[in-house]
Design a binder for these strands. Sequence first.
RNA 1: GCGCCCGUAGCUCAGUUGGACAGAGCAGGGGACUUCUAAUCCUCAGGCCGCAGGUUCGAAUCCUGCCGGGCGCGCCA
Length: 552
Amino acid sequence: MPLDVLESLRTAIGDAAEQAAGARPTVILTAPAQPEHGDLATPVAMGLAKQAKKPPREIAETIAQSLAADANVGGQLRDVEVAGPGFINLRLAPEWFAAAVRRIIGADLEFGSGGAEPPERILMEYVSANPTGPLHVGHARHAAYADSLARVLVFNGHQVDREYYINDHGRQMEMLGISIASAYGAPFGVEVPVPEDGYRGDYIKVVAELLRSEIGDRYVHDLEPLTEEALGFFSGRGGELTIKAIREELISVGVEFDAFFSEASLHWDGRVADAVAALEERGDAYEAEGALWFKSSKYGDEKDRVLRRADGDLTYLASDVAYHLDKADRGHDRLIDVLGADHHGYIARLKAILESGGKSGEMLEVSLIQLVSLLEKGEAKKMSKRAGTLVTMGDLVADIGVDATRFFLVQRSHETPLELDLDLAREQSQENPVYYVQYAHTRAVGILRQLESEPPSGAPAPAELDAAERALLLNLSRWPDAVSEAGQKRGPHRVAAYLIDLAGDFHAFYHRCHVSDEPEDVQSFRVNLTRATARTIRAGLGLLGVSAPERM
RNA sequence: GCGCCCGUAGCUCAGUUGGACAGAGCAGGGGACUUCUAAUCCUCAGGCCGCAGGUUCGAAUCCUGCCGGGCGCGCCA
């Protein structure tokens, strides 16, 4: 049961609506844009008008009257009125505000958590970048999105396992091996030609250097020509070191995994071959044009897909059959794959894999992440892998810091291409929304730090509240909805948007309402409000992997 | 050609299980520091919500068509 300070109101409105119209609606409570429309408003009467065959205003009047007479909530309401086409506008009494802030404080860091309906066991797979080089800004967006989403889902009450799938098999690993071998041989005066699609980045030299310190000149004589053993060593050990570096880099931005799953291991223990054989037995694979095909069209894909090429090599899809069926078999209710938007064509075949394996395609959900580009001095920063101007995640973090990196990358919906304004992100002051939110937290804890003593928590509510106090508390009361929605809609950017909004309300409150040296009832209420805000901001920033500093 | 995503203020974007005059930040104009930190606040200006139809008491939100942009379309991963 999520703690929700609006719950008793919702229930009361639902009850009243059921009595008035004979049906129980989902009670939507909105924050009216205009203060004349009260603290909260609900359009339920309009929604019920059609099926109840009564004018919306008439239903609204009936609901309003029973609300005012309701023993449970009547005392929390100062005023209920029907307005416009049938809105019910509520003005809340000071008693409601006092009770709400006490409940929020009582819930502590748990406030807003537990909204999962029902809680699920979820396996998330994300980043999964090839172990052939450093992470770039695109991977960073995947990491920031998925890690924040995972944290939000856990906060909502789900159980989440986080996994990185390592594509450490196939041609790209061979390329990596050759590329490293070439860099390894260079200082010894041995030339190993790197193919057109080999890797040439600086990090290849770094890895080669590491290997030189590990093994000295052991493989110098296996370079020309490159022996299978040497190639195996350079690609295998090179891949290990690359994954190690990727893992450490992710940890440095607060992104951690429960498991790193090796694609190669699926080949070693024959599970890919077994999975393919199983498809054939089921009649879901067939030979044609020299290749082996997965009959994915049988399960809704638009066409069939190749499992084994005419040259005998298995495709990545074959590994994915083994991998996704393995994932589906671990007892989770749901699998979430976070993929780049250019992978949208894969969704159908991944679902087909599950269906063919006797699972439900429904259990797989795919979040597609749109591209990231960087904006500098108002112009798009050119990034090209070939030209070596690719911006890595490390570059970005070194440039704008961990907090700004994570906040900016998750601030926008993952469904929209993101243009990250580097100049704004670098800004250590003023316009930067990260600092705007962090500063609100700093201010709040600053006030609390300077107070002599704790106010009595059961103090009565002040008779009159400032508009800024009302707005701030009403916004706080929306946190449970905001964070549940962020989870349900797989949109952690909602948390960022909420925090910016909340920080704005707090800054306004700070200016209008002094906390210390006020009458006891006023000070007590404001201290609690400040404490509730600080905790909510800290919790929210924590979900985004952003720190909540005590001082700035 | 087919499929998916997107089109909201000068810029970057929220808001889309339909609800009151469309929101924020930045950029621009004007104000506020003997104060619990001004990394802040207040205020002004700025929008045919891509276009055209449709459904509805009510559409940025749902449906259809069109225009514009991105991505993807059997033996690459």
